[in-house]
């Protein structure tokens, strides 16, 4: 297990965020040691997020640098209405969108890679897939999701973000975030079913590609 992902317990998140706010106050006062500490606290998270959005390690590293440089230059822009990490990730998101060839990708929930999935007529694919195949299968299917769905999953499970923060970052209502996750799960289930069919382990009714 990689422990680089942020902690998810509410109380430790709150205290971690307090520490980050304290660092930001010191940065606003020109304390470069505090800046390095905040960079270390956020760098990997920004990189992971940018990787999820852009899929390119070099560009993701540039996003880390661009984002943290902006934090260094304008710490006073943090208005305290969100968690500090959410504010920083929002900067990273803007920077990543600037680099996307087609920024509207982040509005499109459709995934071409999943077009061949089978219809959602049976939910047991996840239960039926062997445990050793499951992890590989889930990862494989996650990669095929649309950018929006992948981003949503990243924010919820890698960042451990509350629903309100995910909605704020994605710029949509909370119910839309819930719906996105619902569809992400459905798409992964369908993709797993397809995987089982291709391996001859799943008998299904006539597939329809409507």
């Amino acid at each position: 297990m990689d422990h680089s992902a942020p902690r998810h317990e509410t109380t430790s998140s709150a205290s971690a965020d307090d520490a980050e706010r304290f660092l930001l106050e010191r940065i606003a006062a020109g304390d470069q040691t505090a800046f390095v500490a905040l960079h270390r606290a956020m760098g990997r998270r920004i990189h992971a997020y940018a990787m999820r959005l852009l899929g390119d390690a070099e560009q993701a590293e540039e996003i880390v640098s661009d984002t943290m440089y902006e934090v260094w230059k304008h710490p006073q822009r943090f208005n305290g209405l969100s968690r500090l990490s959410t504010w920083i990730l929002a900067i990273a998101r803007h920077r990543a969108i600037d680099r996307l060839r087609s920024p509207s990708r982040l509005l499109d929930t459709h995934s071409a890679a999943l077009d061949d999935s089978l219809p959602d007529d049976d939910t047991s694919a996840y239960e039926r897939i062997a445990t050793d195949q499951r992890e590989r299968g889930v990862r494989n299917c996650m990669d095929k999701l649309s950018d929006v769905h992948r981003e949503c999953l990243h924010l919820v499970f890698y960042e451990g973000a509350p629903l309100a923060d995910v909605a704020r970052l994605q710029g949509c209502p909370e119910n839309t975030v819930k719906t996105r996750l619902f569809h992400a799960r459905k798409n992964i289930q369908n993709c797993l079913r397809l995987l089982l069919v291709s391996e001859g382990q799943f008998r299904h009714r006539t597939p329809s590609h409507a």
Partner: peptide, 9 residues
């Protein structure tokens, strides 16, 4: 899914 996301990076 959560475990898979955290392992990734």
């Amino acid at each position: 899914l959560a475990a898979s996301q955290r392992q990734h990076h």
